[in-house]
Nucleic acid binder design. Sequence first.
RNA 1: GCCCACGUGGCGGAAUUGGCAGACGCGCUAGAUUCAGGUUCUAGUGAGUAACAUCGUACAGGUUCAAGUCCUGUCGUGGGCACCA
Length: 1121
Amino acid sequence: MRRQYPFHLIEPKWQQFWEKQQSFRAFNPGEEIPADHPFAHRHKISGKVTATQLPPKFYILDMFPYPSGAGLHVGHPEGYTATDILSRYRRAQGFNVLHPMGWDAFGLPAEQYAIKTGQHPRKTTEENIANFKRQIKSLGFSYDWSREVDTTDPKYFKWTQWIFLKLYNSWFNPETNKAEPIETLEYPTELVGRASSRADSKDGSSVASPRQDIEDKRRIYRHSRRLAYIAEAPVNWCEELGTVLANEEVIDGKSEVGGFPVVRKPMRQWMLRITAYAERLLNDLDGIDWSHSLKEMQRNWIGRSEGAIVEFEVEHSCQDCIIEVFTTRPDTLFGATYLVIAPDHWAVDAVTFNEQRPAVEAYQAFAAGKSDLERTELSKEKTGVFTGAYAINPVSGKRVPIWIADYVLASYGTGAIMAVPAHDTRDFEFAKKFNLPIVQVVQPPDSKIDWQGFTDDGTSVNSTGPEISIAGLPTPEAKKKITDWLESKGLGKKTINYKLRDWLFSRQRYWGEPFPIIWKRNANGNLFHEALPESALPLMPPELTDYKPAPGGEPPLARAKDWVNLPDGSIRETNTMPQWAGSCWYYLRYLDAQNPQSFVGNEAENYWLGARSSTQAKPASPGLSKAEWQQKFDELYEYATRNLGNEKRFIHFNTVSEEEAAFLETKTGFKLTGFRRMVDHYALRHIDVEHGGESERNRGLLPVTRDDLAMIPEIIATADDVRYSGKNRHGLDVILYIKRLNGTVFYFEEIRRANDLLAANTLYKKPATGSDATEAASSDTSETHRRTKENITSETLKNKTAVTTPGVDLYVGGTEHAVLHLLYARFWHKVLFDLGYVSTPEPFFKLVNQGLILGEDGQKMSKSRGNVVNPDDVMGEYGADAFRLYEMFMGPLEMVKPWNTNGVAGVYKFLGRVWRLFVDEKSETEFEQAEATAEMQRRGELLEKIHLSAAIKGIPASPSQLKTLHTCIKKVTEDLDGLRFNTAISAMMVFVNDAIAWETKPVSVLRDFLILLQPFAPHLAEELWEKLNIEHPTSNTEHRIDLAYASWPNFDAALLIENEIEIPIQVNGKLRDKLVILTNASQDELQAAALASEKVKSFVDGKEIKKIIVIPKKLVNIVVG
RNA sequence: GCCCACGUGGCGGAAUUGGCAGACGCGCUAGAUUCAGGUUCUAGUGAGUAACAUCGUACAGGUUCAAGUCCUGUCGUGGGCACCA
C-alpha cells in the first residue's frame, strides 16, 4: 500500500520530543514542577506545590506485563491503547494524570532458561525488559517512565519483603474484624502472667526450664495466629521440574511447562491467612465498579454458603465421639439416612469397627492414590465403604450408618456430611449404588415434580420427631426453626463456610523474593522461625551457578551453604515467594516510586488514592447535635415505615448559614440564606420504598438502608459536590448533593419550596466510578424520569465539576487475572489499610477487562496455528497511530474480536484523509522527492517542507461547520466517558468525511478537531498542530500550549439545535413518509402536517382514523382501522 | 451438571428512557484518474422487485399505537465453576 503520510518520520520525531521534555511526568505534592513544563503552563503553577494546589488526580493503570522472550503480542497494546487514550483525554480535561508502567519480572521462564543455559535469570530478564520497553515506547504511550517499577529490582522487592513482615507480624482480630499488630494478641489465661513469677533454671543447663517452656508455648500460640504462618499442606509437586507449581500452572494433572506429571504431596509451606478476609472481600465488591461477570467470578471463588453445623453422636465404638457435619439444608435433617466422612478425616480410625478395618484401610489407600484428575474425571461413579459404625440422628433419634467416601472432601466444612439422598444429587447417586434408604422430607411446590432428587425449596414433610417438628413449613422457615432448636439444645449452630482457602505462599524456586525469615532452635532442639529486622532488607538471594533444585527436593537456594548457614547457628528460609507477591502492591509503588524511606509516602498515597481529598471544601451550617438528630430520626423513621400515618411529620435539622449560602449560590445560583432544612416522613417512606429494595441493583444502584437515611445531615454537610439539577414534576427546583463514602456515591436531593424551606426529596446511591459527575446528570431514577429534560440547562451541565475517586480510577487488564491477582491484591491492600498504611479499603475502583484478540481465522492466536500478528510488523507498514486506532476501532474494549489486517488499512486511510485535510499536495510532492535522495539522518528535517493547504484560513466558522464540529465533540466526549472508543473513532471519521469537502477550512475548527484526535493518534495530531501554530500563529496562549496539554473543547448544545427537523410519519407503525418541519412545531401542527402528506393520504384514505400518536421532535404514528 | 454473558448484512460492528434497523469501517459492484497495477476520487451495496408492494435483528409466542430493545419458552455460541454438602 502506498504510504498515506510520512508517519515513519513523524512518529520518532514526537516520541523523542516527549521523552526529552518529559511531557508526561506526573507531579506529586511537594515535588518541583519546572516552570517550562507544559503542565506548569496549563495549570499556571510551578515550583513546589501542595496537594490542594495541584489539580484533581486521575490514576489510570495497566496490568503490568510479564516481559517474556517472545515480545509484545497484539493483545498487550489493546489495553495499553485504551488507557493511553483515557489518560490523554483526562489530561486535556485538566486532571493530574498518573499513568505508569512497569514489569512483573519474576517468573518461571527466566529460571527455566537459566537451568538450561546457565545464564543468570537477571540477564534474561533485563534483555526481555529492554525489548518490551522498546516496543511499548514505539507506540507513543504517555507513560511517566520516571515511575517505572521492576519487581526483581532489590529497591522494589525490599518493600515486598517488608510487606511480608507486616503480614508476619500481624494477626486478625475477629472482634474488630481487622488485622492488628501481633503485640495486641492476648495469650490465653494459662499462658498469662506466669512466666515472670518463675525463676530461670540456675544451673544453666540446656534442659528446658518452666519459663522457657511457657515462652515456647507463647511463641507457638502467636505463630498459630499470624497472617503469615507455616503449615503442612498438600502441594502440586513436579518431580521433573523439581518444584511445586501453583494450581494455575497445572493443566489436566500435568505441568504447563513441559507437560510433566504433577503429584499432590504434603510439604511444609508458608501460608497467608486470606480466609480471615473472606467476608470483607465479598462484601466490599458491592462498592466497586467492576463488571458483573468479574464480581461473580470473585464471589464464586470465595464461595460463601450459609448453613449449620449439626452434631451426630456415634454409637458404641467410641462413647465420647461426636461427628460434626456441615449442611446448607438443616431442614432436611429428618431425611439424613447415613453419614459420610472423608477418607482422610481424623475420626475414621476411631469409629471404624474391626471387621470393617481392612476394607476401610484399603479404601483409604485407594483414595489417597488418586490424583486430582482421577478424582474429578471419575466422579460420575461414586465409591465408598461402610465403617461398621452408626450415629444417632439428633432430631429423629434413628440410627444412621457411617460411611467413608471420597466425594466428601476433608478440606471443606467439617470434612463430614449428613447424606440426604432424597434431596441431594450426589447423596442420591451414592444411596442408589449402595442401596441406602431414601426418605422424602421435602414436598416440591409443583406436585408433578418427582420428589426423588428434588433439591430446590419446597415444604417440609415427614419431619416430626419426639421433640421437634418442622412438617408443613416452607424451606426457609423450616431451616430457621430447626437451626434455632439445635442451638438451644447445644446440638448445632448456624455457620458460614467459604470455599476460599488460605493462600499457599512459598515456591521452591530461585527467581523470586527470598523470605526475610531465619530458623533457630529452642532448648529442646526444635526449630522455630523468626523474622529478620527491617534493617536487614532487602534480603538478596545468593549467587548461584546451578539453578536446579538442590538434592532431596530442597529449593535451589539450599545450594548456597554460605548464604543459608549464619554464624550464630541459625539458618535461612530457602523457599521464595510466588510471582503474585510483587504484583500485589505495584500500583502503590508507582505513587512514590523512588522513595527510599517508605514503600509509599503518606502525602503521595493520600493525594493519588484520593480518599481524604475533596476538591472543594464546603462550609457546613450548624444544626442538631448528632444525638438529637439520631433520636428524632429513629422516631420519624418508625412513623414513616411502620405506621403509615397520614399526619405530616418532619424534623427541622439545620438552617443555612450565610457562609454556606455563599457557597451554594456559586454552585446553584440560588440565594438560600436562612432556609430551613428538613426531612419529612413522606420523603423517608418514599426513599425506603423506591430505593430500599434489591431491585435497585437492576438499575445499577445499591439499595438504600436505614443507616444511609440516618446520614442525611452528614451527606449535606460534607458533600463533595452540589449542583442545581433542574425542576421536578411540580416545577420545584432540585438541588443535588453528591457524597462519596467508602466506595459508594450518595446522591441526595433537596427541593426548594416557596421561599423558606428545603425538603428532603430523595436519596439513592451507587458504586463509585470515575465519572459520577456525568452519570448523575442522566441517572436512571424515577425522579429523573419525571423531570422534564428542558429544565436541565446546558449551563448546569457545563458546570459539572470533577469528583475525585478514591483508589485507582481505571484499571484495565486481561480476564486471566480475574480471580487470583485481583483477589490477592485486594487482600494485601486491606491488610495495609487495617494497619494504617493506606487510606482506602479497596485498591481498584473501576476495572475493565479487555477482550481477547483472535487471529484472522477467528481462532485464538498461537504459534502452532501460524496466525500470530506481530505488532512490530503492523507498525512498520502502517505506523503506530494506525495500529492504535485499529486496536480501538475493532469493537468494544471488553469484547472478544478477530484481527483483520484490512481493517488496519481502513483506519490508516482515515489518517491519510486527515493528513490531506490539512496539507498542501504540492508541498508534499516536493517533500517526497527531496526525501528520496536525502541522507537517512536528515530526513526528519524535511518535514518542514510540508505546508498547510491554502484552504485553511483564519476565518470564522459557518453555522453548519460549527454544527459538524460540535456534533463530533459531543459524541467523542460522551463516548470516551463510557469507554466506547470504536464509536468515538467513527464520529471523527464522519467529521473528516464532511470537512474534507469544505472549500475553506477555519483554523479554529481544525484546532478543536486535533485536540479530539490527539488521544487516539497523538503523533499525527502533534505534527499537524505544530504546522497550524507556525502558519497560523495565534495570540491565545491556550492554543500555543503543547497539544498534549491543550484544553479539551466543550460542546455547545445550542449549536446542535436545528431550526427544522425531519420527522418520520408512520401509519400503523410502518414508515410511510418523512416530513421536514420546524423543530418547535406543536403537536397539532405536527399532526396536521402528517395528515396533509400525499403519501400518508394514500394509506389513510377510506379508513377510519382510530388514534394519532404525536411525539414532538420524534415521530407521528397514525393508527387506522 | 450449575452460574453468568451474548445471538443484528458477505465480515468487524452502530442504534438515549421502546420511536426512521444496519452509523463507521472492511469487502463487493460500476465509473473517473492511470500505459498498467496500486493509490485517490464519485456513485451504489440487508433480501426481494422493472418499480412499487412485501419480508427482514437466532427461533416460537406475548405486551404495546410502536419491540433489536420489555416479558415467557426453545435453540445456539462464548466464559466461569465443577462431588464445596
